[in-house]
């Protein structure tokens, strides 16, 4: 008996906090590492992730530009809104208002474009990732490893945020340099708080989805594809989400449903905080939006924790944890 003791103590499960914390931190770092380093080893990634998505954003910018041109042509022809221009000063005021609206709308698209990058990353590199790992045979190795599954997801999230930040920053820079958007930050602390809380809430949602996807087969991939355009729409990625409140009777219902995805409230707050003299329709004041986002963050992280444990057990029971191509 005594000869077996050293061997057992060497392999026994350690449960002290310090050991567990170090193990999980190493897991977070280990899972984030390939996303940060591996992605940068693939040069084509820079082109596809940074440069080409700007074109999609440019299309929406040019739509607003086209309508702005039509509006300016009407004003120059003497039509100020629904009535004729009362005087040259009235005409000039309308032209200035149209230009200010254009800046706000283009800024809206640029900020939406940055959020689209994060949302796509959440969908394809967070939510779908465990499903993808299952498909390529890595999931069983993760499941056998001693770290917390949440540490694994946190590593994916941190790596994903880094990867996506490059694209998001490129979009912002292009917005300023190419499209001439003027950003003005009046409350930087609130802006930072909104930005980071939105990201954590978004990736928390991604963690929740990842656990749901664990149980699903090919539906997972299709669900991710389905959550692109409808979420771009319901979150107001390319237009002010407050516009929903102007469309009766279904608009407010879409706004309420859309606010479940943190991108909508986060974007609305970011737009109000960065675009000077923002006169476009809004959903709520930024402070209130931050409070709701904090609530969503806690909710998604807690739900992800429980869903992951529950669905892992369920997937094991139904024999779906390692089933591929179904």
């Amino acid at each position: 008996m005594s000869s077996a003791t050293p061997s057992r103590s060497a392999t026994a499960r350690r449960s002290d906090f310090r050991y567990k914390a170090a193990l999980n931190l190493r897991s977070v770092f280990g899972r984030a590492y390939p996303r940060v380093i591996g992605a940068n080893r693939e040069p084509s990634w820079i082109f596809f992730e940074v440069f080409l998505p700007l074109l999609g954003i440019a299309a929406y910018v040019f739509i607003y530009q086209a309508f702005y041109n039509a509006q300016v042509a009407l004003i120059q022809a003497g039509q100020c809104g629904s009535a004729a221009c009362a005087s040259p000063a009235d005409q000039l005021a309308h032209l200035k208002a149209a230009a200010a609206n254009l800046n706000a709308l283009v800024g809206t698209v640029v900020l939406g474009g940055t959020m689209v990058a994060f949302w796509l990353n959440v969908l394809w590199s967070m939510a779908s990732q465990l499903y993808w790992e299952k498909e390529i045979g890595n999931l069983q190795i993760y499941m056998m490893a001693p770290m917390s599954r949440m540490a694994l997801l946190a590593g994916m999230a941190i790596g994903g945020m880094f990867m996506t930040s490059v694209r998001a920053i490129a979009t912002l820079v292009a917005g300023i340099l190419v499209f001439g958007v003027i950003f003005q930050v009046a409350n930087p602390l609130l802006l930072l708080a909104v930005f980071f809380v939105t990201l954590i809430a978004l990736y928390g949602m991604g963690m929740l989805f990842a656990s749901l996807y664990l149980l699903w087969g090919r539906e997972a991939w299709n669900l991710s594809a389905l959550l692109e355009e409808p979420i771009f729409f319901s979150s107001g990625m390319y237009f002010p989400a407050g516009g929903f409140l102007m469309v009766q009777p279904w608009g407010p219902a879409v706004a309420v449903a859309g606010s479940l995805v943190p991108a909508m409230l986060g974007l609305d707050a970011l737009r109000q905080l960065t675009l000077p003299g923002y006169t476009l329709p809004t959903v709520l004041p930024p402070g209130t939006e931050l409070e709701i986002l904090l609530g969503l963050t806690v909710l998604f992280l807690v739900l992800a924790r429980f869903a992951l444990a529950h669905l892992e057990t369920l997937a094991k029971r139904e024999g779906k944890l390692t089933s591929r191509h179904q």
Binding site: Y60, I63, Y64, F67, A70, Q71, L74, Q79, G81, S82, A97, A98, N101, L105, A225, L226, E228, E229, P230, F232, F233, S234, G236, M237, Y238, F239, P240, G243, F244, M246, V247, T279, L280, P281
Partner: peptide
């Protein structure tokens, strides 16, 4: 759903622009 949602993005863009610019 996907194409209809993409279409609705444009519809909302137009609605907001027309309302804000009053044209």
């Amino acid at each position: 759903i996907k194409p209809i949602a993409a279409t609705f993005i444009l519809v909302l863009m137009y609605i907001i622009l027309a309302a804000v610019g009053n044209f």
